[in-house]
């Protein structure tokens, strides 16, 4: 579907993308994850055909996307970081215009409004839509030509947490029918929630690529069991079989272990489960492990 090999792009002194190689399979939900300025958008834009790589090779649906290839344009759908609407048009008119540009039938317009949950907003001016509604409409616009591959550049970046989660439902359905989706995000949570596979990039380099589960599993990160401080004494906690270390952190006491089942059983027997929180490894731990730095979006 997509082949990227030794991709390089520099802006002056800065190597925004520094030798990235990966491939995306058909039907996959693929995430490019990294902090701001990691080179995600530049990578995506080279795959879409908006930028010419300095070096390396891109093949999109079997063809090079640069220089611009109109036939390729018909087969892909792209959502850019800005909403990219025609001014002063209603939601329905935006979709109609995009449908015309791709030669798609107008009957598709109302279907799409319905699909992205804007059926009752069709006659509202785009300017009056909320941030989340604009993103939904923008996604609908990328679907007018029923594309084989959809590219989404940080679709939830500007949204509040509630709107972000609402949008995940829609995004998660995008590849239901075998469509390939490539998404950039700086949210670890989002990548874990949506992506089949994630490429973690930082400072223009690819750090790791795998499914979120595998990435976390290979990390072999310990599980952290947090309880309300005082529900068990520090010494008693340390004596539980399997506990590697105990930390007291403000109001909680945290037991670190790689074998949580017997530890939890023992804690239950001691009736010391007040305020229980269990946290396994996350992509943030993966990032910390790979870069030695805390992950900051």
């Amino acid at each position: 579907m997509i082949e990227v090999k030794d991709l390089v792009k520099s802006y002056g002194e800065l190597r925004a993308v520094d030798g990235i190689t990966f491939s995306v399979e058909s039907g996959e939900f693929f995430g490019i994850l990294g902090p701001n300025g990691a080179g995600k958008t530049t990578t995506l834009e080279m795959i879409e055909g908006l930028r010419e790589p300095d070096a390396g090779e891109v093949r999109l649906l079997g063809a090079p996307p640069w220089p611009r290839d109109i036939d390729l344009c018909r087969r892909i759908g792209v959502q850019l970081q800005s909403s990219a609407f025609f001014e002063k048009l209603t939601a329905r008119e935006q979709l109609r215009t995009f449908a015309d540009l791709y030669g798609s039938p107008h009957s598709r317009v109302d279907e799409l409004l319905d699909e992205v949950g804007l059926a009752d907003k069709g006659d509202e001016s785009t300017d009056d839509l909320s941030g989340g509604q604009k993103q939904r409409l923008s996604i609908a616009c990328t679907l007018v030509n029923d594309p084989e591959v959809v590219f989404l550049d940080e679709p939830t970046a500007a949204l509040d947490p509630q709107a972000r989660r609402n949008l995940w439902d829609l995004l998660g359905r995008l590849n239901d029918r075998g469509r390939t989706v490539v998404l950039t995000t700086h949210s670890m949570e989002e990548a874990e929630a949506l992506c089949d596979r994630v490429a973690i990039v930082d400072r223009g380099k690819l750090l790791a690529i795998d499914s979120p589960t595998n990435l976390v599993r290979e990390l072999d990160a310990p599980v952290r069991i947090a309880l309300v401080r005082g529900s068990v004494t520090e010494d008693r906690a340390r004596s539980v079989v399997g506990v590697e270390s105990v930390q007291v952190d403000g109001d909680s006491i945290v037991l670190v272990t790689r074998d949580p089942a017997p530890v939890l059983t023992e804690l239950a027997r001691l009736d010391a489960l007040e305020g229980l929180q269990v946290r396994g490894g996350t992509l943030e731990d993966v990032f910390l492990n790979l870069t030695g730095r805390e992950y900051r979006a």
Partner: peptide, 9 residues
């Protein structure tokens, strides 16, 4: 608004 880039694609 990036509409120009969108139309380019």
């Amino acid at each position: 608004s990036e509409l120009l880039r969108r139309l380019r694609l």
